[in-house]
Design a protein around this nucleic acid. Structure first.
Lengths: 193, 193
DNA sequence: GTCTATAGAAAGATAGAC
DNA sequence: GTCTATCTTTCTATAGAC
């Protein structure tokens, strides 16, 4: 009767465990920010204990680095057909992030973790290489660097007010009016030389 | 020789002490965010110990509420002459926050504290009443609510990329080009119906 | 490969002396 | 009115059993 068979242990599979931890971390950092989530909570989301997080990633900070690299690896918003850029960005702000089970949102992760100095440093470098550079390359005309940074700033600001602050005008307002206004603003920044 | 005269105690002055704590909290929350600073550190900045913070404000959360109310009490950016709104906003982004010893920056406080759920709730309410409402009143034309939220989003996003992320294009780029680009974007949002 | 148990640090909050 | 000292909780990280 003293058998410990009641304790459920995860099957031994290092690769799958590591990936599960990474996905859990991605979601947790986007939901609660670097300081707002503990290693225990991340581990629980992956069905393991906190020990394995440090075993596979070394430390919480190293885990955050790995999660950021994955979160920022998708630059499809900014590469590709430049003539559809305003539409893609507006859709990303208004439609993709509507209310459905949002996937891992890189900008939410950014916003909620940037208050930690070590996390901010990690984020700074990844933002520049993964987002600023491709967007700048997609722009034509003068001041492409400045306009790329402006477009990213606007994109991030919209998500901040929509998903973090919860500004009513951006969450409950008339959808068509909102779409037109945001689209016009993006086009002004993209087209302007 | 056992006299405790070597221990420096702050003169007894409740009002001044309370104000010193509040100013220290304002600066600390803007610098490190709600989670990034402790009651002890705030107290040290005011020359007292952590006890008095809780004595005067009840809890860290209540102190944060008091600090937010002060940080968001200045709405002069959004009230006043609407025809100069774009200039005021652009100046606020580029000039006021240049590199000099910035005063307490409300948006920096917002950005760095929004990851904490309780802080986010406090911020949400203050943003709406102190910033969204006056800006909406200053706008003419259609969709004033949506455009007001858009303008605030852009303003916040620029500060995020300039001061938190440190995007080079916004910190080291050509000043005149940057000024013109940002001004044009603001004017597009302000003027558009 | 994964667990339990715990060490060590730091946080918010409180009791009680002066 | 302000302090020192301490309680309690929570966190990251590690040691060692299985």
């Amino acid at each position: 009767m003293s058998q410990k068979l009641t304790i459920q242990k995860r099957p031994r599979n290092a690769g799958a465990t590591r990936e599960a931890i990474l996905q859990s971390a991605l979601a947790a950092f986007a939901r609660s920010g670097y300081d707002g989530v503990g290693v225990r909570e991340i581990a629980q989301g992956a069905g393991v204990t906190g020990v394995l997080v440090n075993r596979y990633f070394g430390s919480k900070e190293d885990l955050f680095s790995a999660a950021v690299e994955i979160a920022f690896s998708d630059d499809s918003l900014f590469t590709g057909d430049a003539s559809q850029l305003a539409t893609r960005l507006t859709d990303a702000v208004l439609v993709k992030t509507d209310k459905a089970a949002e996937p891992i949102d890189p900008l939410l992760l950014l916003l909620r973790s940037a208050s930690n100095p070590r996390a901010a440093t990690i984020l700074r470098d990844s933002i520049a290489s993964h987002f600023e550079r491709p967007l700048r390359s997609a722009l034509t005309g003068r001041n492409a660097n400045e306009r790329a940074a402006m477009i990213l700033s606007f994109f991030a600001g919209l998500q901040l007010f929509r998903k973090v602050i919860g500004a009513k005008a951006l969450t409950d307002g008339n959808r068509a009016d909102l779409y037109a206004s945001i689209m016009a603003a993006f086009q002004s920044m993209i087209g302007g030389g």
